[in-house]
Design a binder for these strands. Structure first.
Length: 656
DNA sequence: AAGGGCTGTCATCAT
DNA sequence: CGATGATGACAGCCC
């Protein structure tokens, strides 16, 4: 091929990372508020963004913004779009990743629907939500629209601020009821608790942590919060015997990936405790999903992290190596051609494969080992699984702790207050102690229940569960005692928080009223000054009229008949008949007949003095004059004065 | 050592 | 009638 002919060909270099890089840059710009040209307001929260990005992701924004839209425009989102639901969508627009929890997925779906977020609404939510909210495979319970929106809104109203601690408890409340009753060694006791439906989520969601105003509580939760949440995660782990791979959205995705679904899902445990998805929908499948107890392990994490489906189900050798991992990844990303693989992707795939191998080398497979104690929950992870970087992201520490609600967590666990590691069951006064004590009792009595289950189950579920368990009288008493005390403890927290909220609200109200009062005082002073000015100008005009007309006292009296007692004419009338009205210069000293309004400035001064010292109402202004003095003195402008002068002159002319 | 704050628990009432 | 939630009162612990 000659040089000349080669010049005729066009060569194409296609970068696999360019688009991601651009998006990443845009995201960084957004975070630094660089080149952002639009402000989005959802509820009370505002977000900066780039019009182009928004418009390219959302039909709503596409319609709202155009090239003619001025820079710096503020777009107020519809009421149904909450900040809670919008923020993840905005992140999605800039990262292609939608981070969601079971708790907020409906909110997000609702917002995505309203905003017309492309590639999300149907592709993502339509198949995800049924898996989320219906463990019984009945789609009838899947909410079409977010009923939670209302709940959330009302909650937002009710709880003006929910801090992270709240989130922990909320997650807890969401997770707890979804714990299938697991008794790996007693298959006769069926898992009875279905994954909670949305209504229930709302209900339990209201029961959030009420301790955000209580420093001591916060302190404890800072110390134990994440660990507790880990316990929760693990407690909630559905080691369900009847779970099949159908319940695994990853598998679902795996299948779907061959069809239309081009999106991938990750079960990432994030710092925000977004763990609700993990335990329920990312069960570990040591092999094909054959109903073995499942548990999130490093391997599962690996699958999840790499947006992968179940390798086993895909008939792939666990030792297939990087090529297989790569292929798995690429199979799922069937919208990407092989040349679009980045080195990062391959690196991830490598790592995943490595960990898969490593974890599967354990006797139980995937780092799952049997716990030798008698505590009801008998699975935890071996150290190798915990070493898996992905496992760590999934809170493997929590999994390790998950050994019977603190029964043996007190064995030097760093996650519980140190004072619980002893045997001092007499002092369990703090929250941690109390809950730990409950846990200890659970283990002591060999109860096949966790404290969370005892406390968080609904009345019916609880009774049903008790029926299914064959408990002794003593065990029943302990269970009821734990339930009663725990509920009361929570109720006491609620009660105290309400009180604090109430106090806080009252303080705000007082502050608001104070500022309102100050505002009114300023306004009143202004009005009084205006009134004084008007009166002075009014009296000056009268004085001039009287002087020019050279009125006699009788004439003045006639004029006074038609005048307000507050008008300056009264002052002239009250002055000595001999004196010329024009001489009555010191109007302020004249108080005429009863009912006549004292000169304005003196009364005003009194009023101001009074109001400033005693915060009384402005008497001089509010008090209705006894006669026909116009209520609003400032309304007496020069025009009115002129007409009054004209009237007076006419009347005088008639008299004369 | 005293006192205030926080928390759990109990008793009681209402639902 | 029992379960549950709210709340006042009390006690114990911590700072």
């Amino acid at each position: 091929m000659s040089m000349e002919s080669s010049k005729l060909f066009k060569f194409t270099f296609q970068s696999s990372v360019h688009s991601s890089y651009v998006l990443q840059c845009l995201n960084e710009q957004r975070k630094k508020d660089l080149l952002c040209d639009v402000t989005i307001v959802a509820e009370t929260q505002s977000f900066r963004a780039h019009r182009a990005v928004l418009a390219s992701c959302s039909d709503y924004f596409s319609a709202r913004v155009s090239s003619h839209t001025p820079e710096g425009i503020v777009i107020n989102l519809p009421d149904e779009v909450t900040s809670e639901g919008f923020e993840p969508l905005l992140d999605f627009a800039y990262t292609s990743k939608l981070i969601f929890t079971k708790e907020n997925v409906l909110e997000i779906r609702n917002c995505a629907s309203v905003l017309g977020f492309k590639n999300l609404d149907k592709a993502c939510f339509d198949f995800l939500l049924p898996k989320f909210f219906d463990s019984s495979k009945s789609t009838s319970k899947v909410p079409k629209k977010c009923c939670k929106t209302k709940c959330c809104k009302s909650r937002r109203v009710e709880l003006s601020s929910i801090n992270k601690d709240d989130a922990i408890d909320e997650d807890k409340s969401l997770l707890q009821p979804s714990q299938p009753q697991v008794k790996a060694k007693e298959p006769s006791c069926p898992p009875s608790v279905a994954i909670e439906d949305v209504a229930k989520s709302c209900y339990s969601g209201k029961d959030t942590d009420y301790s955000f105003l209580c420093p001591k509580y916060r302190k404890f939760q800072i110390a134990c919060g994440k660990e507790r949440s880990c316990l929760d995660v693990c407690d909630s782990t559905p080691m369900s015997l009847d779970k099949t791979d159908d319940d695994c959205p990853l598998n679902y995705l795996s299948r779907s990936s061959n069809g239309d679904c081009k999106e991938t899902f990750s079960c990432n445990k994030t710092d925000e405790d977004e763990d609700s998805l993990l335990p329920e929908f990312c069960p570990l499948n040591p092999g094909p999903c054959t109903g073995q107890p499942s548990f999130p392990t490093g391997n599962e994490s690996a699958h999840s992290i790499c947006d992968s489906g179940d390798l086993s189900n895909r008939g792939m050798s666990p030792r297939s190596g990087i090529d297989d991992a790569e292929r798995t990844y690429m199979d799922l990303r069937d919208d990407q051609s092989s040349e679009q693989r980045s080195t990062e992707e391959i690196e991830v795939a490598k790592q995943l494969t490595f960990w898969q191998d490593s974890c599967q080398a354990s006797p139980s497979g995937l780092g799952l080992v049997e716990k030798p104690s008698n505590c009801p929950k008998n699975w935890y992870l071996d150290s190798r699984a915990l070493d898996c970087p992905f496992m760590q992201r999934f809170g493997a520490e929590g999994a390790q702790l998950h050994d019977g609600e603190g029964g043996s967590t007190s064995q030097g666990s760093p996650y519980l207050p140190s004072n619980q590691s002893g045997e001092d069951s007499d002092s369990f006064d703090t929250e941690g102690d109390s809950e730990s004590y409950s846990s200890e009792r659970v283990c002591e009595m060999e109860l096949p229940l966790s404290v969370d289950q005892i406390v968080s189950l609904s009345r019916n579920d609880f009774q049903q569960m008790l029926k299914q368990q064959c408990l002794t009288r003593e065990q029943l008493d302990v269970v009821h005692d734990i339930r009663r005390r725990s509920k009361n403890r929570i109720a006491a927290r609620r009660c105290r928080k309400r009180k604090l909220d109430c106090i806080h609200n009252l303080e705000c109200e007082i502050e608001k009223l104070r500022s309102e009062r100050e505002k009114l005082t300023v306004e009143r002073i202004k009005l009084n000054q205006m009134q004084l000015k008007t009166w002075q100008s009014y009296s000056g005009l009268y004085e001039r009229v009287c002087a020019e007309a050279s009125l006699k006292p009788e004439q003045l009296q006639v004029l006074a008949k038609y005048s307000s007692p507050d008008c300056p004419l009264s002052a002239f009338l009250c002055s000595s008949p001999d004196s010329h009205p024009a001489q009555a210069s010191d109007l302020s000293t004249h108080t005429c007949r009863s009912g006549a309004k004292p000169p304005v400035h003196s009364s005003m001064e009194n009023t101001v003095a009074q109001s400033s010292s005693q915060n009384l109402l402005p008497l001089g202004v509010v008090e209705a004059p006894p006669h026909t003095c116009p209520p609003d003195a400032s309304a007496f402008d020069k025009t009115e004065c002129r007409s009054m002068v004209k009237l007076s002159t006419d009347l005088l002319g008639q008299q004369v």
